[in-house]
Design a binder for these strands. Structure first.
Length: 465
RNA sequence: GCCGCGUUCGUCUAGUGGCCUAGGACGCUGGGCUUUCAUCCCGGAAAUCACGGGUUCGACUCCCGUACGCGGUACCA
């Protein structure tokens, strides 16, 4: 046989059930990196088969998150592709066809799940573990999937052997064995005609020629069902890898209650997408030279699936902040100004360009997030009225007197006046900061006052006279 | 409960039998620079490698067990 070249095709399969989750981006990053390392295709398939949890806009929001991170896909509902449609709700006929095939081959069977009980009340099967048909009074089962679809009182389940076990290879964890006894006869087709995840994912991964499945560890337990389906269909199983899931500080699965899971939160807090990606890459993977800071491209070049660690990492916002600060400091002034304006539109109205430029120079080493710029520069645009102690008012007055006499308005001149004041009144710099800015610390004072100009500086002191 | 996955400083991690009296990073902390706060530079504390048994001349590294954590056990993904 001729040496067959692998076509690398990897996917993420998010469900549009809410805001964009940082865990989705984590998965997207690793899938994206591996496809790009191998000149493959990165696919986004929308798994919207749970009609009850569907959230309008959620799909669009997922894509805008991917765009923000620069993790563009090659095939998706919005981009189209050779294997369209990429939205599972639009592929129902396909699932029905394969469900029918399973039925005909004897690998699936119908189970009775009446919508209402005999009094006409709506039945709720959520959480029920047993087969309903095992103890219900049952009308004759449908003959085909098509018939099942008519009544809506039936579901299709997969068969599972009673005896024996099944072994699956995971590229990160090795071989995993499951007893068939432990595998439930999973519902494949719900009574509303939509497939469950398990049918959908297997059919689509095969049809879309997915070469590597790289997903979170919560899927490990459904592995036997999936592999069984591959066998029933006679399809080749892709390479499978399960990464660890991100955790809260208490080690539970990363959740809204304890951590920050919404991508929008990171955006609103002024984190840079590049920094977040860099941080995410460090979770479960490490740079061969133990570098902490590297570009997406460098990650793509060095990354390999086999180097992923199976241990679930705690998401540490602290380290992300540091990394974000590093990215801010690495930027050119022009880049940083651009990011700042993009982040906060009001900057354009509040500062004239030269003023803004000068403040950014002073602020760059003092920010960990873009949001912090507002804190640092606030006193340039907003009025403030600190409640000064009597003693400090006196200082302010003396400051006014001395600074009015400064002829060359330079930081050196201003500083030397300040030095004198500090000496006379035996106080420290924070006192002067408070007088001028309302805060005991901040951007370098003399430089700030130079930017502010002599007139405005004196005007500030005037209110203490 | 049952099944599966995991377990190196507080956190992210390096480590694939001797280089480890365990290295780096964040955070914490002492100092230098600077009469603010940061940045930057130098230093420190911090893991008996979850625990107990093996295997081996030798184990953080291999095997077994226990404990603990997490996940699954849905007409959710």
């Amino acid at each position: 046989m001729i040496n067959q070249q692998t076509n690398y095709r990897l996917r993420i399969a998010p469900s549009p059930t809410g805001y964009p989750h940082i865990g989705t981006i984590y998965q997207a990053l690793f899938n994206y990196a591996y496809t790009h390392k191998n000149n493959g295709k990165f696919i986004v398939r929308i798994e919207d088969t749970d009609r009850t949890r569907l959230v309008e806009d959620a799909e669009q929001v997922i894509f805008s998150a991917l765009d923000w991170f620069g993790l563009q896909e090659d095939e998706s509902p919005r981009k189209g592709g050779q294997f369209a449609p990429y939205r599972q709700s639009e592929r129902l006929a396909i699932y029905h066809k394969f469900a029918q095939e399973l039925l005909e081959k004897g690998y699936a069977f119908f189970d009775y799940y009446p919508k209402t009980d005999n009094t006409g009340k709506k039945k709720d099967y959520s959480g029920s573990k047993q087969l309903v048909s095992a103890y219900s009074q049952i009308p004759p089962a449908p003959k085909s999937v098509e018939e099942m679809l008519q009544s809506q009182d039936w579901v299709l389940r997969m068969k599972v052997p009673d005896e024996g076990s099944i072994s699956v290879h995971d590229g990160i964890r090795g071989d995993i064995t499951f007893e068939y006894k432990q595998v439930s006869k999973q519902i494949l087709l719900k009574s509303d005609g939509y497939p469950t995840y398990h049918l959908g994912v297997v059919v689509d991964d095969h049809l879309m020629q997915i070469s590597h499945i790289l997903r979170a560890e919560e899927w490990i337990s459904s592995l036997p069902k999936h592999v069984l389906l591959y066998k029933y269909f006679g399809w080749e199983i892709p390479e499978i890898y399960h990464t660890a899931t991100l955790r809260n500080p208490d080690k539970s699965k990363l959740s809204k209650r304890q951590g920050h899971t919404n991508v929008n939160w990171f955006r609103e807090e002024g984190f840079l997408p590049e920094a977040i990606l860099n941080y995410l890459a460090l979770l479960g993977w490490s740079h061969p030279e133990e570098k902490e800071i590297f570009t997406l491209q460098e990650f793509i070049d060095k990354f390999d699936l086999k180097d992923i660690r199976p241990v679930a990492p705690i998401f540490d916002v602290q380290k992300l902040k540091w990394l974000n600060g590093e990215y801010i400091r690495q930027m050119s002034l022009e880049e940083l100004e651009g990011e700042l304006v993009k982040f906060d539109k009001s900057i354009k109205d509040n500062f004239d360009p030269t003023l803004f430029h000068q403040i950014v120079i002073l602020a760059q080493s003092r920010m960990e997030t873009l949001k912090e710029f507002a804190l640092l520069s606030g006193h340039f645009v907003q009025t403030f009225s600190p409640n000064l102690q009597i003693q400090y008012k006196e200082i302010a007055q003396e400051l006014y007197r001395m600074l009015s006499e400064v002829d060359i308005w330079s930081s050196e001149q201003i500083m030397s006046s300040m030095r004198e004041i500090l000496h006379i009144y035996k106080v420290k710099m924070p006192v002067l900061y408070t007088i001028f800015t309302g805060q005991p610390k901040g951007l370098p004072l003399p430089e700030s006052l130079v930017i502010l100009g002599k007139d405005k500086t004196l005007a500030r002191l005037q209110k203490y006279l």
